[in-house]
């Protein structure tokens, strides 16, 4: 696919400036794949939350973007990974208003509501990886995988 050119990427997340690149990349990639303005904004906002968690809580890491296709429907998958302390209690971290720092505690749970698929893999002491996918049209029905 020729669209993959501007979509697939691996970006470092080490500074506030990197967060700007992450948001810009996700916005361009989503626009390229045909996401509506509202859906672009949702995905960019989710990426912003997750990338900042990678930076602030995970001590830095990276984001990988990939184009995915299921049943003729295109989507964008973002994977944020760090080798930080991990999340000891994921349910609590996902609940609205929980923060271990001075945040609003809305980032993780909010990001989950802004995307179609949301998976967290976290190992205390060795790191966290959050993978989200959104589809250009609606999420494909009856997906067994992912």
């Amino acid at each position: 696919m020729d669209t993959a050119a501007g979509v697939e990427a691996r970006l470092p997340i080490r500074s506030d400036m990197d967060l700007v690149w992450v948001r810009q990349h996700v916005r361009h990639a989503a626009a390229k794949l045909g996401f509506s303005l509202v859906d672009q904004t949702k995905l960019v906002t989710a990426a912003s939350e997750l990338a900042r968690n990678t930076l602030v809580h995970g001590g830095g890491g990276q984001m990988e973007t990939a184009q995915v296709t299921t049943g003729g429907n295109g989507g964008l998958r973002l994977t944020f990974s760090d080798s930080g302390p991990g999340i000891p209690d994921l349910d609590r971290a996902l609940s609205d208003g929980y923060t271990s720092g001075g945040g609003l505690g809305m980032g993780l749970g909010g990001a989950r509501r802004l995307v179609h698929d949301f998976t967290v893999e976290t190992v205390p002491g060795s790191g966290t990886s959050v993978r989200v996918t959104s589809w250009v049209s609606r999420p494909p029905r009856l997906r067994e995988d992912v």
Binding site: V38, Q40, T41, T45, L104, M106, A111, L114
Partner: peptide
């Protein structure tokens, strides 16, 4: 409008 919708989903 797009930002208003996003804010609502985010739960802010």
């Amino acid at each position: 409008p797009a930002i208003a919708q996003t804010i609502v989903h985010l739960g802010l």
